[in-house]
Structures are given as C-alpha cells and as structure tokens.
Simulated scan of single mutants.
Amino acid sequence: MLKAFGMSLSGNCYKVKLALTQLELPFEWHEVDLRHGEHKQPAFLRMNPNGQIPVLQIDEQTFLPESNAILYYLAHGTDLMPQGKLEQAQVMQWMFFEQYCHEPNIAVARFIVKLAGRPASREQELQKCIVGGYKALDVMEQHLGKNVFFVSNRYSIADIALYAYTHKAEDGGISLDNYPAIRAWLQRVASQDRHIAM
C-alpha cells in the first residue's frame, strides 16, 4: 500500500491526497509534525534528504518527494493524464507555472497571513507575494476564459496542481472577486467525482 507523508494544512500535500482519493488508490496518510521539527529528524531525512513534504512511499526502499512529481507518477496511464505527447507537455507546462509563478506567491501569502499570523516583519514580503499572486491569477483567468480546464478541456493533474492553493487564495489576502472564470473553474473542480475538501 502507498504511504503519503505530509501536513493536512499544506496545499502541496492536499494535491497528493486529492489525486490518491480520486484515483481510488489505497493509501495510508501519515501526518508530519513540522512545528516540532519531525521533517528534520533522521527518519524523515532518509525518505527525503531535502526535509520537505509531501513524500510518497512507493515500497520499502522507494520514496518520491515533490508534490508535482508525485502527481505525475500517480496519474501516468490514468484519466488524469492526457495520452497525447503535446497534451502531456501542456500538463507539465501548467505544473511548472504553478511551482514557479503561482505557489511561491499565493501559498507564501497564505502562510504569512493564516499560519504565521501576519507578523509586521513580513509585511513587505506579503505585499510582494500579493502582487505576484494577482499576476499569476491574471494568466489563469485569461486561459480559463476560453477553456473549461487547463489542458484539452478535460480535468487533469494540471487542474489539481493549480486548484490546491487557488481555492485558498483569500486566506492570504488575495481576492478572487475579479476572476469569474477562475471561480467557475473552482466549482467545476470541486464537482469532480471523489473530490475531497482540504
């Protein structure tokens, strides 16, 4: 049985849990206590020397970190990954966008506001993240204004990757009021079979 190690409040970990659930793959969830440094302990570092969550344990000796790499592994050969070469590359395009342009802004803003309590010492960083978050949302809104989902108008791991933190953007002070296409897409994602809440 697959084992997933992560923190339930993390969008990156939620991606993995959502994909596992929607693919109906049996798995065990192991909550990692970041506040007490469990991710820095030798047992965890043997799974991921980078000390980050999530991690998927595939067998006794095989561990796969990085949320989008896990999504790719889980989705290969399933309905969550298109079959065409170009479409697969487009899935990866949006997943790279998520990790490079989207997550570093929207996820970090959420962390500063919701989890760290918006300390004054991080206000300048927060404002920079909010600006970057809106820039990423602008790109998504333009695409979703003409597309039902991110690739080939069908639900895929590209949508899972971008949904995780987008649907929690307001936790970081990033409003979705001016993004009707994104809001409609969020509802479409939430209506997928076996969807689970974060």
Rank of each mutant, 00 (worst) to 15 (best):
L45C: 11
I112S: 03
T21V: 04
Q90S: 13
F27D: 00
Q61T: 15
L186N: 06
K17S: 06
W29R: 03
R194A: 13
A161T: 08
K135H: 13
K128A: 15
C129A: 14
G84C: 09
L137C: 06
L86W: 12
Q124Y: 04
L56N: 03
S175M: 11
I58C: 01
R35S: 14
F96L: 15
D159V: 10
A89C: 01
Q57W: 08
L45I: 09
R122D: 08
D177I: 12
A169E: 05
M92N: 13
L2S: 00
N153T: 02
N12F: 05
E24N: 12
N147R: 01
A75G: 07
R35E: 14
F150D: 10
H36W: 10
E60A: 15
M95L: 08
I130T: 03
E125S: 13
L20K: 01
I182C: 14
A197I: 08
A69K: 03
Q90I: 13
N50S: 14
G117K: 12
I53L: 09
G117Q: 11
E87R: 14
W185P: 06
K146V: 09
D59L: 06
S10C: 04
K15T: 00
Y73G: 00
W29K: 04
I70P: 12
I106H: 01
Q93D: 12
I196R: 01
H39R: 10
Q127F: 07
